[in-house]
Design a protein around this nucleic acid. Sequence first.
DNA 1: ATTGAATGTGTATTAATTACATGAATTTTC
DNA 2: GAAAATTCATGTAATTAATACACATTCAAT
Lengths: 246, 246
Amino acid sequence: MKTSTPAAGSAAPHLIADAVELVHSYPQMPLTVDCVIFGFDENKLKVLLIRSDLEVYKGKWSLLGDIVKQTEELDDAAYRVLRERTGMTDVYLKQVQAFSSLNRHPGGRVVTVAYCSLLNIRHHELQITDNELHWQNVRSLKDMAFDHKEIIDACYNWLQKRIQEHPLGFNLLPEKFSLRELQNLYEAILNLELDRRNFRKKFFSMDFLIDTGELEEDVKHRPGKLYQFNFEKYEKSKRKWIGIDF
Amino acid sequence: MKTSTPAAGSAAPHLIADAVELVHSYPQMPLTVDCVIFGFDENKLKVLLIRSDLEVYKGKWSLLGDIVKQTEELDDAAYRVLRERTGMTDVYLKQVQAFSSLNRHPGGRVVTVAYCSLLNIRHHELQITDNELHWQNVRSLKDMAFDHKEIIDACYNWLQKRIQEHPLGFNLLPEKFSLRELQNLYEAILNLELDRRNFRKKFFSMDFLIDTGELEEDVKHRPGKLYQFNFEKYEKSKRKWIGIDF
DNA sequence: ATTGAATGTGTATTAATTACATGAATTTTC
DNA sequence: GAAAATTCATGTAATTAATACACATTCAAT
């Protein structure tokens, strides 16, 4: 970081001794985090929303977010939001992008850092009783508070790309899942149809699925086998992906 | 954005009428941008550094950065840094990641957003005369100011990945370039050796290179053909990349 | 016992990637 | 100006990956 250009050609640049004073002279602004929390239910990708508490956005949905505290890291702030809202720890959470439009918040300049979170919709301890919280279909979002539609779009694009390179999807499924559920997940996220045999071939050839020996229950047709993802094995053999292709 | 959890089960959540007052109550902090500016010279990937002006980092190199102004967007702040430091407009610039470690700045809490920039090392108007500015080999960085080593690593990883999916590399080359130069660029960035025939085949089959009909000059061997990248054609046929592969 | 619906599996075709060697064009050297 | 040195330019065969496609099996429901 460098605050002022030294006079051109100055031979002896002056060094700043008091870094604290320097930082005090910096402009300051509020910083927030917003979590795009994805869930998977009824073969649809959902995002967790809350009613905006701002009068100007009355009735509109917004993301779960909060201010970043004076001595809090961004990741910690995002985790705090998740913990407070869903009761869950150990959730998948990754920083995606900062948003800084000057008019993105009606109360003035607020910069926000967006996070993408993936969790199993059955595992959390939401009280959706008071209908403040709501799982909404990702493909039927409209008219949201702030720039939150834009943020969700960015995170959704990010997810579509990432899920093809990294095994993120499993965070959305129960620990044990059938191949059909896995395929439904990919089809929902990528918004396309996949050939069942090729999909199975693909995942089996990657060899990261553990056959639990168990079968689906409470299903009204021939039950499928249940698998687990072998995170350990995957970690060991993370592929270095090389292949130029625009 | 949501600041306070409504009392559990509260049937009538109160709406905040004064958004400005709300934002005024938010904690504030300084925000900066840091630009990881890559260049390509002598078949090496370089990054543009400046001597830190902080006494505590005396003699150490740091990234080019600056504070984000009260009414300035992040992208604009990063572009401003580039323009002021390199004299260049129209440069490739993308936001990569925010860094927020509490101790990353010796003067106190400063959050920074890192940008990756790619430019042609011959095009700028640097005054490197007073040795404040310096193009340094990406693979020989050590002992930098702040967390800038970490930031560069993150941007370099980002670049290695992105350059395989998008034609970013051309921003680092002159408008007209030989296939050998292009291959050298990829080899430098990806840190590997590629087969020349397959590399050529790959790029020709993508069909985004325009044969200028010109040949290299001032080269002490058989001159190669010079090509241009067909950005227009590329934009029209951006590939939607589908292929699950961890 | 029959029907319905989803599971589980294999092969042939096509496309993409990899490995690999020689002749042609230009500069340098003698 | 002939020979040597260097790099450019190019094609094919072998391997691997992706795609398209059909039928028998299992269980639940009737």
